Simulated scan of single mutants.
Amino acid sequence: MDIAERYHALDAQVYPWFEAQWQRVVKLHDSQHLPHALLINGMPGLGKQAFAEALAGYVICHQPRDGRACGQCRSCQLLNSSGHPDLYFLAPSDSGKAIKVDQIRELSDFMHSTAQQGGYRVVILNPAEAMNTSAANALLKTLEEPGNDVLLILITHQLGQVMPTIKSRCQRVDCHPPQLAQATQWMVEHLELSEEEAAQLLDVVHGAPLAAIEFKEAGHRALRGKFLVALKELLQDKSTPFEVAASFHKEDVEALLSWLQGLLADVSRIKVGGAAAPIRNRDVQKMLNSVAKYTSKDRIFTLVDTVQQERLGVARRQNPNKQLMLERILIDWRDLVRTE
């Protein structure tokens, strides 16, 4: 693989909610204690890729200062133009596909080569959970003997899907959603929203600011509104699971499942804490209160597990028929409030 095939335009930046994690890795680097492999863990939509790219730029920079890359040296110029020969991006060849063993073998050749600009060679692998078993086992050999001045940055959105042997050979950098006040203020400044609008968006996407931006730009607000109405009508027997599945199976099914999972999480909170429990989907609180009142914890948790598994299957393109999958899930949603 040549540099043109493994390069993409950088979005290197450290968002305010990652400042503590950034200071930690910079301190490790400056004290010459940076490990050869980092595992950046957190939910999607937080900016982990941008964090990884900023770190790559920092360790490759010839003259970093004040905890940031200088932006002026030859390495920085390469990073921000045609691509840097000592930076390697590894991702599935197609979105939703697996990272395969042949890709890891090519990566190993890069990691054991000589840095063309001197200093570090850096690999950003995203997402780590996309590696199939053969690829993960091949990477283990590289992790055991990575070579000198090599930094492998693995990004994961689903830590539980990463092989334990991979996790044990990496130092973890956990990334959490920012505090609501910080995220709201950032969105107000960057999207020209009111605080109320920003807070509502963050509720829908579980507090991930970049996911909120994507939600807004993709026009998902209208789709979510239609989906919520359909879910309510299912509970009221005004429509059937088959009709709803037929209406939505050509939409962004992963987004639909994400929203449904969020609704179920709120139902669980209400079931445990009562109607006053804090929830995210406050615009449909009445419906959620009703579901919590008439369903059982076992039914909720069973459906949560089902939705989670189907989301994983959709992300990996394993589900052959989205309409049938939606039908099964929507039947279970409707049956949450049905008595035997």
Rank of each mutant, 00 (worst) to 15 (best):
M1W: 05
D2T: 07
E5R: 14
E5W: 12
Y7S: 15
Q13W: 15
V14M: 02
Y15T: 03
Y15G: 02
A20Y: 06
W22R: 02
W22K: 07
R24T: 13
L34D: 13
L38A: 03
L38T: 01
G42I: 00
G42R: 01
L46D: 10
G47T: 03
K48M: 03
Q49K: 12
A50K: 02
A50L: 00
F51Q: 00
A54S: 12
L55D: 02
A56M: 10
Y58S: 01
I60C: 09
Q63A: 07
R65A: 12
R68N: 06
R68V: 09
A69E: 14
R74A: 11
R74K: 10
Q77C: 05
S81G: 00
D86N: 10
A91Q: 11
A91I: 07
S95W: 06
D102H: 08
I104K: 05
E106C: 07
D109S: 13
M111G: 13
H112V: 11
T114R: 15
T114W: 15
A115P: 08
A115N: 13
G118K: 01
V122I: 05
I124N: 06
N126G: 03
E129A: 00
A136F: 07
N137H: 08
N137W: 10
L139N: 04
E144L: 08
E145D: 14
I153A: 03
I153V: 10
L154I: 04
L159C: 07
V162S: 01
V162F: 01
I166F: 00
I166A: 00
K167C: 01
Q171F: 11
C175E: 04
P177E: 02
P178G: 02
P178I: 03
A181E: 15
Q182D: 14
W186H: 01
E189R: 06
H190I: 15
H190P: 14
L193V: 14
L193T: 15
S194N: 09
E195C: 11
E196G: 14
E197C: 05
Q200M: 06
L202M: 13
V205Q: 02
V205N: 00
P209M: 02
P209T: 01
L210P: 11
I213N: 08
F215G: 04
F215W: 06
V229I: 12
V229Q: 08
L231E: 02
K232I: 03
K232M: 05
S239L: 08
A246V: 11
A246G: 15
F248I: 03
K250I: 01
D252Y: 09
D252R: 02
D252G: 04
D252W: 01
E254Y: 15
L260V: 02
D266E: 04
V267L: 09
I270D: 02
V272K: 08
G274C: 00
A275Y: 09
A275V: 10
N281P: 06
V284Y: 02
V284W: 04
V284R: 03
Y294C: 15
Y294A: 12
R299P: 03
Q309D: 11
R311H: 08
G313Q: 13
A315Q: 15
R316W: 09
R317C: 14
P320Y: 07
K322Q: 14
L324T: 09
L324A: 07
L326E: 04
I329P: 01
I329L: 09
W333S: 06
R334F: 08
L336H: 04
L336S: 07
V337K: 06
T339M: 12
E340A: 11
E340G: 06
E340R: 13
